[in-house]
């Protein structure tokens, strides 16, 4: 598979990367791990004239704890997240999600930032960052800014990033006491992408009622989304099976549901409901365990 020819640029600094992107506009693309972009180029679906390789900006690969947050550099590979002891302790949803991405080879090269910026409608990370209410931080010649995950995903493979903006960091609030999170996914048998992927975060009050629920769903619509209807249905209610079932029923509400050879829109909507229920069940179980720990 041979892509169309392109020019390859290796900026030494973020500023340079951003400047190059501004210069090339729609003809330029940032390259991180390349595991979404390169296949599309090889299929000739995408043919950027300029590739701006960010992988030399090594400062952007890190995982660190800072106060109430965990900060993850955009160029951190899926594998580093999957195997991070810090994340396993502070934010286990991230390693749990990383484990479900592609295969070992993909996880060794692919990066969280590249994945989010590419924003494939069936990618795994969007679900997790939505449910964790993470902040996505980006740098451009105009300075640095943060975007809430719920505002980041705009449409099919379209994010809130300006074309000269570089996604630099994913800032994740640590889960509080009595909070549990889980990711439930059905893999597409060929691509490994999510036919449906649901990340759920549940915080329980001492009386067992749901204090806060955040649910991110990928693979179902043209973009990953927060299932606000599910969250609202749970808020303040006891986390009983009946309530979880009822809430999960809203999983695909108001969504233009995708259809492909493996799942019709009808079936995919059903999967969204089942996997939302499963993610909620697991998150509640963990929240209870966290409360008693």
């Amino acid at each position: 598979m041979i892509p169309q020819s392109f020019e390859y640029h290796v900026p030494r600094t973020l500023e340079e990367a951003s400047r190059l992107a501004a210069q090339f506009g729609a003809d330029g693309k940032f390259l991180a791990g390349g595991h979404s972009l390169i296949p599309m180029m090889k299929l000739r679906l995408a043919a950027p004239k300029h590739l701006i390789d960010l992988t030399c900006l090594r400062d952007l690969a890190y995982i660190r704890e800072e106060g109430e947050h965990v900060r993850i550099g955009a160029l951190t590979t899926h594998f580093r997240i999957e195997s991070s002891a810090l994340l396993k302790e502070k934010c286990p949803l991230l390693p749990e999600t990383a484990r479900e991405i592609g295969d070992v080879q993909v996880r060794n090269r692919g990066t969280i930032g590249g994945n989010l910026a590419h924003s494939d409608p069936a990618a795994d990370w969007p679900a997790a960052v939505l449910a964790l209410e993470a902040e996505l931080r980006a740098v451009s010649p105009r300075g640095e800014r943060g975007m809430a995950a719920k505002d980041f995903f705009v449409d099919l493979m379209t994010t809130a990033l300006a074309s000269d903006e570089v996604l630099v960091e994913i800032k994740v609030p640590q889960l509080g006491h009595g909070t549990g999170a889980a990711y439930a996914k059905l893999h597409h048998p060929a691509s490994g992408y999510a036919m449906v992927g649901v990340a759920a975060v549940i915080a329980l009050r001492d009386n067992g009622a749901v204090e806060r629920a955040a649910v991110g769903i990928t693979g179902v619509g043209p973009k990953a989304y927060r299932a606000f209807a599910v969250e609202t249905a749970l808020h303040g209610k006891p986390a009983t099976q009946a309530h979880l079932n009822a809430a999960a029923a809203h999983a695909a509400e108001g969504v233009d549901v995708n259809a492909d050879l493996y799942a019709s829109a009808e079936y995919r909507s059903h999967l969204a409901r089942v996997y939302t229920r499963r993610a909620l069940e697991a998150a509640v179980k963990r929240a209870r365990a966290a409360a008693t720990a």
Binding site: L43, R44, P121, L156, S191, P222, A259
Partner: peptide, 17 residues
């Protein structure tokens, strides 16, 4: 052609967009 054979997964969503 190309789009039909390699873009199956994204085609409907793309058309809608």
């Amino acid at each position: 052609g190309l789009i039909a054979s390699v873009g199956q997964r994204l085609m409907q969503a793309a058309a809608r967009q």
